[in-house]
Structure formats: C-alpha cells, structure tokens
C-alpha cells in the first residue's frame, strides 16, 4: 500500500491551482485538501493522478463568515473547525450536529468540509446535510466562479458538478429561520463509520404550530445524497403530529435506491430510512418546541 509515482504542486493561489488543473493532458490532476480519503486511495493505488495540486497553503480558503442571511465557509475549512464554530451553531445547528458524525476527532482535525463534499461519498454526512440546508457550492475554474445548488451538485457515486479543471472553493449556507428545529439520526455499524443510513432533518414551525418548511435529506441510501421531497410535502402546511410524521417517514423510504452491500441489503436501508426519518422528525419537532 504505497502510492504510485506522482508529481506534486503546491498551489500558491486559487488561480494557480486552477491553472495546473486545467493544464494536465489527461485531465487527471487531483486536488489534495485534507487527504483523509484521497491519500488512502493513492496508497491503495485506486487513485492514480499524474499530479497532485495541494491547496493546503491557500489559507484564504479557510474561513467561516456570516454575511447577513448567509453563512460562508471556505472549502479548506477543517471539519473540526466547522463542528466547533459558534457561528455555524448559530446559523445552521444542523450542520454542527452533522459534523460531529464525520469520522473521528483526528480525522476532523485534518479533513476539510470542501474535501468531503467534493469527494461525494453517498454515505458521508457533509454532502447530505448541505442538501438538506439548500446550500450553494461555489466552483472556481478557468472561466471564474460559478454557483451550483447542493441538490444539483452530486451527479453520482463519487462524481459531482466540479469539472476536471475546476475546484470547489466555497460553501454557502442560508441561515435557518427562527422556529426551526433540527436533528440528525444516523445508523452506522460503529460510531464514526460512514452511515448505513443517516437522516438530516430541519423543520420550521409557524406561530400557528403548523410546519412552514421541512427539509429531509438522506445519506447512505442512494448513489448520491437525496432529498425526501414527498416526505417534506407531507409535513409542510400540517401540524407535526405522530400521524404526519409517520406518513412522512413512510414517504422517505420511497426515495431510497441502494444496492445490497456487505453491511446491509437494500430493503434494510429502505426500512431504516423510514425508522430514522421518524426519529429525526420527532427530535426536530421537539427542538422546535413542538410536542408530538
């Protein structure tokens, strides 16, 4: 388990990184951020880039900022920093909670939120929670920056909207409105493992006690993170009752589309999507001060 030969380029700026990414012949340059997934893949020789573009020197991509109704997070921000950030907890508590499920502390020390999102493992927490939050992802390439909604960003297993000559540079998360309750429910074989199934729920409750907005995203159940739109529709406009939550949970199971693997058959994941959705919604409702 030793990496194959590879060239190394330490990027001095975003423009410099993009320049190298767009100049390799086979479009096989790889951005090296925290390296928590990429370096093991190099060691197993499952990834064979000709050049690594190390962006760890781009400290201008390491920030968490609140701009009015938006929270902006630089792609190089370490997962640990996102997890511990008061600004994140204030603006998007669902994101704080989700980051606590990402690997283990030492992995979060080094791993970056941008790296996790760009790697696009369908069982990872960061991609799914950003879908739940309707985040926007800023991609920078030779033609400059463009923004893609999180729900359009993930194209398939380990594939995203980021082109071979582009890199993810910023994550923008709309601040959750007041009256929103959040919860993450994850079923993993062990604490810190990738999810068998994880559900990220945010429900906003109006003054009349009705649900005005609901976001439900699932990880581990599909080739990409997925929103359970039908389940959300069940809730919006209704009260958060045991019945509506059960209906939503059942609807959530309908979006799953996974293959059998060593940890679980597909139908198990489908069933768990329902169980965890119910649990997540109950906790989220309680977080929004609704007694179910």
């Amino acid at each position: 388990m030793k990496p194959a030969s590879v060239e190394y380029h330490k990027a001095t700026s975003i423009a410099d990184a993009v320049d190298v990414l767009s100049s390799t012949e086979d479009e096989d340059a790889k951005v090296l951020a925290g390296g928590q997934s990429l370096v093991p893949m190099l060691s197993m020789r499952l990834a064979r880039p000709s050049v690594l573009v190390d962006i760890n020197g781009l400290t201008d991509l390491d920030y968490i900022r609140r701009d009015g109704d938006w929270l902006s997070i630089g792609a190089l921000t370490r997962s640990r920093a996102v997890e511990k950030s008061a600004a994140v907890r204030d603006a998007a508590p669902l994101l704080s909670e989700a980051m606590g499920f990402v690997g283990h502390a030492t992995i979060r020390n080094r791993g970056t939120i941008g790296g996790s999102v760009a790697h696009a493992d369908p069982a990872a927490e960061a991609p799914a929670v950003l879908c739940a939050l309707d985040a926007e992802l800023v991609i920078t390439g030779p033609a400059g920056a463009r923004t893609v909604g999180a729900n359009d960003f993930f194209h398939g297993f380990l594939t995203t909207a980021v082109g071979p000559d582009e890199m993810l540079t910023e994550i923008r998360v709309p601040v959750l409105p007041a009256g929103t309750g959040c919860a993450v429910e994850e079923l993993a074989r062990r604490h810190g493992d990738f999810a068998m199934v994880a559900v990220f729920a945010a429900v906003t409750v109006g003054d009349d006690g009705r649900c005005t907005d609901a976001r439900l995203a699932l990880a581990g159940t599909n080739p990409t993170p997925v929103r359970a739109r039908e389940a959300e529709a069940v809730l919006v406009g209704s009260g958060l009752t045991a019945e509506t939550i059960a209906q939503a949970a059942q609807a959530a199971a309908g979006v799953t589309n996974s293959a059998n693997d060593i940890h679980a058959p597909a139908e198990y994941r489908r069933d768990m999507a329902s169980v965890l959705t119910r649990r997540a919604l109950r906790r989220a409702a309680s977080d929004a001060n609704v007694v179910v």
Binding site: G35, Q36, V39, P40, H104, T106, R110
Partner: peptide
C-alpha cells in the same frame, strides 16, 4: 492500516493530531 482508520500513525501536526499515513511528506 495505511488507510486512515486505525490511528497507530497519529502525530501532532502543527498543534493538532493528524494521521501521518494520510499525508505526504512533502506536505
């Protein structure tokens, strides 16, 4: 393990623990 799971290669890197199997020396 050389794939970032077991933690035996843990070092303190610029003040925080890190897995030295998940980094290249040049970094």
């Amino acid at each position: 393990c050389e794939h970032g799971v077991c933690g035996a290669c843990t070092i303190v890197f610029n003040g925080a623990t890190a897995r030295s199997c998940c980094m290249l020396a040049v970094q």
